[in-house]
Design a protein around this nucleic acid. Structure first.
Lengths: 203, 203
DNA sequence: ATGACCATGTAATCCGTTACATGATTCG
DNA sequence: CGAATCATGTAACGGATTACATGGTCAT
């Protein structure tokens, strides 16, 4: 599993399950997400495995919190994972499946509408990521030298999303053009065959 | 679930579970994958739901095959899915998690090696996709007009992968540069502090 | 005959989501 | 007092992977 290692990595500093969840929601860790109902049991499992240890924090305010911290064993495990080389997962894009099957509708207008819709959604995600990035770099893009090593790596990671989403938005535009071309030429064919039919009838 | 609809879409023409699996392996349907052990039960479920019907093909050669075909109900279900707008799934990138946590190694050389490794893997996938695309367009990129509607949509879908992977590879290069910059400046700092120490000693 | 490939499935396990259950604190 | 938020969990279900089990055909 990867979530185990993701949690291990996120516990750079001691935190509760709740803290981790809010890290997932807030920009920085955009590359992964998990629900509290998954986080809590995994943290428990990692503790029984000796990668984490927890203590109940006496609540100065609010309800008591169980705060986890990495053990030496957990740290070694994390290092091992980092040194194991990039873990490539299987990507699944339901919307590309939909696009492939669009020909069943036999309606280029529908394909066009679909791509437009997709472009909007991808664009929204891109805007959110750009926002999250500029909050880390405080506008000072290009020179990442004044960032600490942690933020530096996080910004690099975010930029993958920005690059990739940007490319996807451009792909939407290109595809919309292609679809439009095809609509034009099929209209021309319509006119041609209409003309032919007229010829036949009049001939 | 999406796999249900993906299978429904792939059954444009009658096919067995085995056929579908090989479609997943062969370029065209690169956006999704599934194991035979998942495909067979899902096909059975779709049949009990009345979206598919199957018959055993009398084997002219080889073992008997169970061939599935869409019913009218299945076709309606597919159309509904296509008209429901793009289905955006949660993407998870374990390697971006690894990159974020790289600062724990405190070794820019390791970060650099990691990115290089990642670049190679992404590049391999990109080359494979480009190959699959050119097999469909037969080199005739740019003018997709001579493709049938099915292949046209498939090529559009493949191009998303090509655009996005291209952007990711460029991101690797950019990141490698950033990492290098940081290595240079940290070496300079080393030299500076060495110089200072010398000053102190000689002073 | 041996290995590669065709072909179909079941079982166990794991990962992830949704729904459910509980209770304290804080702010208006 | 009521709603929002903090905080921790369990249960049920569904989706995906890995392992297991079986047997036929075909080429060397």
């Amino acid at each position: 599993m990867s979530l185990e290692h993701i949690l291990l990595g996120m516990l750079h500093v001691p935190a509760s399950g709740y803290d981790i969840k809010s890290d997932f929601s807030q920009g920085t860790r955009y590359f992964w997400s998990a629900e509290l109902s998954q986080i809590y049991p995994v943290l428990q499992k990692l503790e029984t495995r000796g990668w984490l240890k927890s203590r109940i924090e006496p609540p100065t305010k609010g309800p008591p919190r169980r705060v986890y911290d990495r053990t030496a064993k957990g740290r070694r495990e994390l290092i091992g994972w980092l040194n194991a080389g990039p873990q490539m997962g299987t990507e699944r894009f339901a919307y590309l499946g939909q696009l492939c099957f669009m020909h069943e509708l036999n309606d280029m207008e529908a394909s066009s509408k679909f791509m437009l819709d997709l472009k909007v959604r991808l664009g929204e995600f891109l805007a959110w990521l750009r926002q999250a990035e500029s909050e880390l770099t405080r506008g000072g893009t290009e020179d990442l030298d004044n960032l600490n090593s942690e933020d530096f790596h996080v910004v690099l990671a975010m930029r993958m999303g920005i690059h990739s989403l940007g490319a996807k938005v451009r792909w939407c535009d290109e595809s919309l053009e292609q679809i439009d071309n095809r609509r034009q030429s099929s209209k021309m064919k319509d006119r041609e065959s209409t003309a032919k039919r007229k010829e036949v009838r009049s001939g």
